[in-house]
Design a binder for these strands. Structure first.
Length: 870
DNA sequence: TTTTTCACG
DNA sequence: ACGTACGTGAAAAAC
């Protein structure tokens, strides 16, 4: 069989990948989507082709737009996006690291390199495959030269293949005739003029019949549309020149030795390091599992007897650093950490060579965990991944030696979607793990990773100035959140059910009425069906908004509601349907045997440092509308207890006042209660007691806008005013509070310089969007840079308060318990006789959590349900 | 699996 | 011209 070479049109594929994939960046802010897409296409096609040789061709003067996707640019040349430009040299570096031959030559475009190489290889009897996104290359197809054009559609790569015969079939012209066609029709994206007045259709017709421009010129008088005859004569010079431009050079003189393109192992050590840096996680799995992991594995020991297990535990109690992993049997391991799973055993690591597994067969789980708890006070560092979840199995004896590498990894990069120990192993230890392995082995790896990653993670946290944040806030918070999850919140199942039933009655009534008015039955929950009914069948005006069709979002419908009663009913239906499905039915499913909901409070989800709540989400229980608010009546304290609810008063604005140091705003907070009214008074130069409701409302919206990273557009939307008016409000605001403007500008500048935003407590949030050339993305980055320090600092403060409150309740041996956190609000289920003490604790811990330039204040209420206590 | 909608701070 | 306020999670429909 003939040997095969694959030739890749470098810039063309890089371009395809760039535009086909969403923006990706590694944690250093380097854009990587084009490289990632290129590699995926290349690896997929290499798997299919299995060639002996491979070469990637680049233009020397990188970004001409010859190979730009013409669909996107329609011939207009824009400068190459910065995000793409910066990826070109990195792409070449990646290819070099994989030992892949790159060819680029002064004065020659990639097309010419590919043309010359393909002819040369073909004449030497090889099979040739050219990979490009550019259809110009089709002129090179023969029955030995295949052109492959990859298309990225919704993440999947589809490839169109063309041998000469396929070109003929698809375009009715031979590959060589393609050149003549282009000579006639021209190509603006390639600066080929063509013949004026002849487009694709005419060109195709002429070339199908006469096969070349020269022959067509001979028969100029007979050409089909008479104007073409005239055109080809009049512009013959241009046609000839265009043909020269369109023809890809196939006989350039190249400095190229085919043997330099021979494909070896492309998954080299060097490439591995580079992929790691670029954070191409799932490409890394293509590399052979490397040496170090096997070396680690050699030290794994599973206790063969009870005596051995005891000896291991004995030794572990002497450890300075102890890595622990409690594991479950695979069959029961899904979903992770759910329910009362049977434990498979424990893995321990306290040295590079001391990695042990103690399976339940060798020691009763209860006894094993008890011994583990006893010895857990010993080590200086007790390293456990997913500590909060692990605490369902065993409780560390002391808190301050605990180290959760997952939390550390989150602080170091809070933008990731999930954090597994496998990632920590790879990132901190260069340890690549196989996808599947036995439970014991996996547990040993986890224990080893916990042991070995603690020091490097600490180094990195210290380097980033986040060690204190980690040690004093995040790690203690693990215990607070664990307690809250264990406590749960009591929910009256029967009452909730009644509430749901009442909703159901109203829902079906509304449903009937809406169907009646629409004249047919349809699914009101379907935005698609609803859009068609409203905007097509019933002819309401309200145009399209989403990609898929009409927007039926509340703000659109609200504008129509006054004129169309049916729309108002739809809005009401929506509201009720939401309450029933998400809250009435949704919450009911989570009430456990003890009559309480034990939701999860997640510490490694948000980009800003806030806590998130899931299964169910207890941070979005309705409150703004009365009907929804009623749900809070089913959240009740146990008999003998009462709810105490405390929430920070405008914590984010106070943080802003502090961080900006703005004299006026600080002063405002020191004197009065109603900050929005003060703002209105100062911004609109109106005496405090003469501020109108409208002025106050506007000032409030501006205050919110500031915290979100103000934009005139956003404010105009919120207030239903023009952008210009919104811009004026903002200008007046900044004039009143000049310190705020300076602070926000500086926040953006700092984030641009460093690549991340920082809170008062050192928490970082990377903002890669700031370097985007896309206006929208960059603007988003700017708003994020303004918002993150504020939202994040408020989150830090709340975390400090929670730890303080919970610790005081526990150390005072109180029956009262912390049950919920809703970003700026804490709910405590207080033993009645302790209620006053609880209020005192809440007030002190929340108001003293941070010492700012303005006082932190809370509002507090007591009640026999969450509804009453708010 | 992704999109749309909507609940909260 | 671009088409958004910041941060979340869940349900239902569409794909």
């Amino acid at each position: 069989m003939a040997e095969k070479i694959v030739l890749i049109d470098g810039h063309s594929i890089l371009n395809r990948a760039f535009f086909g994939l969403p923006d990706l960046t590694n944690s250093e802010g380097l854009h990587t989507n084009a490289i990632y897409g290129f590699l995926n296409i290349m690896l997929k096609l290499l798997d299919e082709e299995k060639p002996e040789y491979l070469t990637v061709a680049f233009d020397v003067h990188a970004p001409t737009f010859r190979h730009q996707m013409y669909e996107e640019y329609k011939g207009t040349r824009k400068p190459m996006a910065d995000e793409l430009r910066q990826q070109v040299p990195v792409m070449k570096e990646v290819l070099r690291s994989m030992g892949i031959r790159i060819i680029e030559q002064e004065g020659l475009e990639a097309d010419d390199l590919l043309g010359t190489l393909s002819k040369r290889c073909e004449s030497e009897g090889m099979d040739v495959t050219i990979i490009s996104g550019d259809r110009d290359l089709l002129q090179l197809a023969t029955d030995k030269v295949k052109i492959r054009i990859p298309k990225t559609k919704q993440g999947r790569t589809e490839v169109e293949d063309y041998y000469a015969a396929d070109v003929k079939e698809r375009y009715q012209v031979t590959p060589l005739e393609f050149i003549d066609m282009k000579a006639l029709m021209g190509d603006t994206s390639d600066n080929i003029p063509g013949v004026p007045g002849i487009g694709e259709k005419t060109a195709a017709k002429i070339i199908t019949e006469y096969h070349s421009i020269e022959n067509a010129y001979q028969h100029a008088g007979e050409l089909k549309p008479p104007r073409a005859s005239k055109a080809i004569v009049e512009y013959w010079d241009m046609a000839v020149m265009s043909k020269k431009l369109a023809a890809i050079c196939v006989d350039a003189s190249l400095d190229y030795d085919i043997e330099s393109a021979r494909l070896g192992n492309i998954f080299t050590e060097e490439a591995y390091t580079l992929f790691q840096k670029l954070q191409f996680k799932n490409l890394l799995s293509r590399f052979e599992v490397k040496g170090p992991s096997h070396a680690v594995e050699d030290s794994f020991r599973t206790a063969g007897s009870r005596e051995e297990a005891e000896r291991i535990l004995e030794e572990a109690s002497e450890a300075e650093t102890l890595g622990v992993a409690v594991f479950r049997r695979t069959a029961e391991a899904l979903p992770l950490f759910a329910g009362e799973a049977r434990i498979g055993g424990v893995a321990l690591c306290f040295g590079e060579k001391e990695i042990y597994c103690i399976p339940e067969e060798k020691m009763e789980i209860a006894e094993l965990l008890e011994k583990l708890e006893k010895l857990s006070a010993g080590p200086k560092t007790l390293s456990v991944f997913h500590l909060k979840e692990t605490m369902k199995y065993f409780t560390p004896s002391v808190k301050d030696n605990c180290f959760d590498g997952i939390i550390a990894a989150y602080l170091l990069n809070p933008l990731k979607n999930d954090y597994g120990f496998e990632d920590v192993a790879r990132e901190q230890l260069d340890l690549l793990l196989e996808e599947k392995m036995e439970d014991e082995k996996k547990a040993c790896y986890e224990a080893y990773t916990a042991y070995a990653s603690a020091a490097p993670l600490q180094d990195k946290l210290e380097e980033a100035g986040m060690w204190k944040l980690f040690k004093e806030i995040e790690m203690p918070l693990v215990f607070t959140l664990f307690d809250m999850e264990q406590n749960g919140v009591r929910v009256e199942a029967d009452e909730l059910k009644d509430y749901g039933n009442r909703l159901a009655v109203q829902i079906s009534r509304l449903e009937q009425e809406i169907w009646q008015e629409a004249g047919e039955e349809f699914n009101i929950n379907s935005p698609k069906q609803l859009g068609v009914i409203l905007f097509e069948k019933m002819g309401l005006k309200g145009g399209k908004k989403t990609k898929t069709g009409y927007s039926t979002a509340a703000d659109v419908l609200e504008k129509l509601a006054p004129d169309y009663p049916v729309v108002a009913k739809i809005l009401e239906y929506r509201q009720l349907a939401k309450l029933k499905s998400t809250y009435a039915d949704g919450l009911a499913a989570f009430i456990s045997e003890d009559g309480r909901i034990h939701g999860k409070f997640n510490q490694t989800i948000t980009a800003t440092g806030r806590i998130s709540s899931t299964e169910p989400n207890l941070q979005n229980i309705p409150v703004r509308m009365e009907l929804g608010r009623l749900i809070r009546k089913v959240f009740v304290p146990e008999e003998g207890f009462v709810f105490v609810d405390a929430d920070y008063s405008q914590i984010e604005l106070r943080v802003l006042a502090h961080c900006s140091g703005d004299k006026q705003l600080i002063e405002a907070y020191r004197e009065e209660k109603d900050i929005h009214r003060i703002t209105a008074s100062q911004v609109f130069h109106t005496p405090f007691d003469q501020v109108t409701d409208l002025q106050r409302r506007n000032a409030k919206a501006v205050n919110f806008g500031i915290v979100y990273g103000i934009s005139s557009f956003g404010l105009s939307q919120d207030l239903s005013i023009t952008r210009k008016e919104a811009a004026q409000y903002i200008e007046q605001y900044f004039h009143t509070y000049p310190g705020i403007k300076i602070f926000l500008d500086d926040a953006v500048k700092q984030a641009k310089d460093k690549g991340y935003a920082v809170t008062l407590f050192g928490r970082r949030r990377p903002v890669p969007e700031l370097s985007s050339s896309n206006f929208m993305q960059r603007s988003f980055g700017e708003r994020v840079a303004m918002n993150s320090p504020i939202q994040g600092t408020a989150a830090d403060i709340m975390k400090i308060a929670m730890i303080g409150v919970n610790d005081r309740l526990k150390s005072g041996n109180m029956k009262s318990r912390l049950v919920l956190q809703v970003h700026d609000e804490l709910l405590v289920e207080a033993w009645e006789s302790e209620a006053e003490e609880v209020k005192k604790i809440l007030k002190e811990e929340m108001e003293q959590a941070a010492s700012l330039a303005v006082p932190l204040e809370i509002d507090m209420h007591t009640g026999k349900s969450w509804y009453e206590a708010k």
